[in-house]
Design a protein around this nucleic acid. Structure first.
Lengths: 210, 210
DNA sequence: CGAGTTCTTGACCGTTCGGTCCACCATAGG
DNA sequence: CCTATGGTGGACCGAACGGTCAAGAACTCG
């Protein structure tokens, strides 16, 4: 009944996200957003509201997508403990992309805005709780598979793994070289996820424990 | 020979540092800096140069002070391994101060400006290398004291400890409660610094540890 | 006590910020 | 083909930005 939109909302949010990711919230101007989206101010404001709302939309999209990836990455490997090991190396990324070390958008946003914007802080808190729960499920699976000691609290180990992962993410932002980063990630993985395959009761398809 | 300064440079830098720490670089305006220092624009510019240089001065002061604290904290405990354990709990802070969770100024600055300002990135890289070396020395001492396995590379363990500490710092910024944070720090400490007092050759004069 | 020098203050500058508004346009339904 | 409806792009706005400058104030030295 009227003129249709000339842009794809998802593509715009993607471009916006990349911009905020590269430069941060405060250092991104509306002109930047117009440039990367190709849209005029009027269109942006009509479609998304002001800068902050647009940022929150992009951030929510990022975290949703991230959780999807995480769910898949945790479920995919046959052995859960391998998924947990990869968790620590994942932030290092492919050698191929060679993109700038820009860390995690949510972590960056939390650092930049956590003090000033309660909504960003709350979103970060919720997101990391969900992440912890996902990792905790995977830890529990690794326990059932006999690759981790069964006694420990899965959530506690999940929190330790998440903290270690965020530490790796941050160290990568300081310009640490890939080799050192990889070695550190493996070292952390070895200490947080010790190899129990030796003293494990050897039934790998053990599904029920209490 | 001329009018003396009416302010103490160190006090001004301290106030500036607190402001940048609370709000970040981009979100701090010259008006904020004038307010917290009590100085006029002219004085600030005459004494320190522009906003960026003032920020870098404050940041360097912070890291220098931090390294002094770290050196002391690592040297103070009779047993080096205890110093390393405290390293992970230190970011949680006193229950008394109850200040806002604002993390580490250098970490925040690295996240906000690391992509855009090579000097900040280089400073962060240098600083964390120094920190790694300090922790590595402490690890080596713990090895000599028989509290850590002697075979491992001290620097490698230092990097793992530093990454874990930064992870704790970050998780505290997400609004995680103190109890959970403390539990996570202790869990990480237990896994990265396993208790070797049992199988240690008993040549050191070990005073009782509770 | 006067001259010389530095520090302080706040007015001022051009620019850029986020945000609003409106004239114009492309489309779908009648 | 015409009209109603929503999309588009850019002119425009006041405010705040970082930064400059000049005039006056405070001090030391001769």
């Amino acid at each position: 009944m009227a003129r249709p939109r000339a842009f794809d909302e998802e593509q715009v949010l993607q471009a916006v996200r990349e911009q905020f990711w590269d430069a941060g919230y405060a250092a991104t101007s509306l002109e930047d957003l117009m440039r990367v989206t190709g849209l005029g101010k009027g269109s942006l404001y009509a479609a998304f509201g002001d800068k902050r709302q647009l940022f929150l939309r992009a951030l929510r999209g990022y975290t949703d997508e991230n959780h999807d990836h995480l769910r898949r990455a945790l479920a995919e490997p046959p052995r859960a403990v391998d998924a947990l090991r990869m968790l620590l190396e994942a932030p290092i990324g492919d050698p191929a992309d060679a993109g700038p070390r820009r860390g995690c958008l949510l972590a960056n946003s939390t650092c930049e805005l956590g003090n000033a914007d309660p909504e960003v802080l709350a979103h970060a808190h919720r997101t990391y709780e969900t992440t912890t729960a996902l990792i905790g499920d995977c830890v529990a699976r690794a326990q059932r598979e006999g690759d981790l000691p069964a006694g420990a609290d899965p959530i506690a180990l999940a929190r330790a793994l998440l903290a270690a992962q965020q530490g790796i993410v941050f160290m990568s932002r300081t310009g640490l070289d890939r080799a050192t980063l990889t070695a550190t990630a493996r070292s952390l993985a070895a200490r947080l996820l010790p190899d129990h395959s030796g003293d494990r009761t050897d039934r790998t398809d053990r599904t029920d424990r209490s």
